[in-house]
């Protein structure tokens, strides 16, 4: 890295850009070519874990749904929080 770059501050490198683009497209292609969206149950489980760090919710509180309409995929997340009294 040259002196000039040092003073310009750290820019996003092209390698980082390449990696990010690949991660997105490969995840997408894997979902299409390898037996559909098998990551959904995992996503649901992990979301539930994250939410539970902040709010006590039941197992059914998180619903993940994926729809495909006119070539567009819509990922629908429905998280039901308990009533404010129940949260104390």
């Amino acid at each position: 890295m040259s002196l000039l770059n040092f003073f310009r501050g750290k820019r996003e490198t092209s390698a980082k850009l390449a990696k990010e683009r690949l991660q997105i497209i490969i995840a997408h292609e894997r979902a299409q070519t390898r037996g559909g969206h098998d990551f959904l149950p995992m996503l649901e489980k992990e979301l539930l874990e994250v939410i539970r760090r902040y709010v006590a919710v039941s197992d059914e509180a998180v619903k993940v749904k994926l729809d495909r309409e006119d070539g567009v995929e819509v990922l629908e997340l429905n998280i039901i929080l308990p009533d404010s009294e129940a949260r104390d």
Binding site: M1, T13, S14, A15, K16, A18, K19, L22, Q23, I26
Partner: peptide
């Protein structure tokens, strides 16, 4: 080139 951020590193490729 990998050190300079011009090329994906071996670690990047393994991660993907």
């Amino acid at each position: 080139r990998a050190d300079a951020g011009e090329m994906m590193s071996v670690e990047d490729m393994l991660e993907i």
